[in-house]
């Protein structure tokens, strides 16, 4: 079989569950060896896409090919070469750590010993608990064991559905280091996450919302895609009063809380029609009159989260639903 040009090739995929359109005309191509992210909130269609790629679900329309095999008819071939870690823990809770691993290796007619090298770094912290039942493991350890089981047959393509959801920041960081190591071995990785900061760790990402692809690009290109200048604003005291003042400012286009700062964009017309000097000076004057002390305003490189919110069709915050 000739090497596939794309490890994953999705063309015009659609899938409905009754009246709910879970995936709508999604097309994505992932070359071999890429670390690709599906980024979006719950309900964006991430899990449905994984189930189609893992040959657990047939699309209503469109085609999906994984490792060169079409998911229609190629189920057996795909399952040989794909490792799939579902969002929900799906190992056997009544088997021990070692038994689960042996079981999954046996399913693929291999042994843990044969492919131990691939899982060594992930398995080592689990090794002291090898005789513990998987159901009795903590969340972080379950996640590590599930990844080991998905890797034990040395897959070409790894499908990871929200592996870091509900996992603390330390474990999340460790998990992404592991993904980097697996990528270095040439494994194609498709990973989904609702955490925008994790998008930056992928080579390319697809931003998804309600079953549709908003955009596919590299993290850098997504940041550069932000259409207008963006500012970070901070002042002494709580952020909330500052947000409220910025929302009430007539020239505000968008304003969102970002950690201890507010990210602000201004209406182009207001920028152009700035009467006294620059739009920045107008804004600083306004905030001072509103009683905010030590206001700092600086230009900002947008994050992927800024771009995502922009693509969500962010209306000016003054008309956001909660402010109605």
């Amino acid at each position: 079989m000739p090497a596939a040009m794309f490890a994953i090739d999705l063309q015009h995929l659609s899938k409905s569950y009754g009246p709910v359109q879970a995936v709508q005309d999604v097309s994505l191509r992932v070359p071999p060896g890429e670390l690709f992210g599906l980024i979006g909130p719950d309900g964006a269609g991430k899990t449905t896409l994984f189930r189609i790629m893992a040959t657990l679900l047939l699309p209503d329309a469109g085609t999906a090919a994984v490792a060169g095999h079409d998911t229609r008819g190629g189920m057996r071939a795909i399952r040989e070469v794909v490792g799939y870690m579902p969002g929900r823990f799906s190992l056997y809770p009544d088997l021990t750590v070692a038994e689960n691993l042996d079981f999954f290796a046996a399913l693929f007619r291999t042994t843990v010993r044969a492919n131990y090298e691939l899982i060594r770094d992930i398995y080592e912290p689990l090794a002291p608990f090898r005789d513990r039942r998987a159901g009795a493991l903590s969340g972080g350890m379950k996640q590590k064991l599930a990844l080991c089981c998905a890797l034990i047959h040395k897959p070409e393509v790894l499908l990871l559905d929200e592996p870091t959801t509900g996992v603390d920041a330390v474990s999340r960081q460790e998990f992404w280091q592991v993904l980097g190591q697996l990528k270095a071995r040439g494994i194609t990785i498709m990973v989904s996450t609702p955490y925008m900061d994790e998008a930056a760790r992928c080579e390319r990402v697809a931003l998804l919302q309600e079953g549709q692809v908003l955009r596919v690009d590299t993290p850098a290109a997504l940041q550069a895609a932000y259409p207008v200048p963006l500012y970070a604003v901070r002042a002494t005291g709580s952020l909330y009063p500052l947000l409220q003042s910025l929302r009430a400012y007539p020239a505000t286009r968008t304003v969102y809380a970002f950690g201890e700062e507010a990210h602000l964009s201004l209406l182009p017309a207001a920028t152009a029609a700035a009467t006294t000097g620059t739009a920045e000076a107008d804004l600083l004057g306004y905030l001072a009159r509103a009683g905010h002390a030590q206001v700092q305003l600086r230009g900002l490189t947008p994050t992927i989260e800024d771009t995502f919110m922009e693509l969500l069709g962010a209306r000016p915050a003054a008309t956001a639903p909660t402010a109605r």
């Binding site: 719950d42 959801t165 509900g166 969500l312 962010a314 639903p321 909660t322 402010a323």
Partner: peptide
């Protein structure tokens, strides 16, 4: 963990509440 899995705009609206 009230905001797990929601989109970034909704997450911020939740904080307004």
């Amino acid at each position: 963990e009230p905001t797990g899995g929601v989109d970034p705009i909704t997450r911020r609206q939740f904080w307004d509440l």
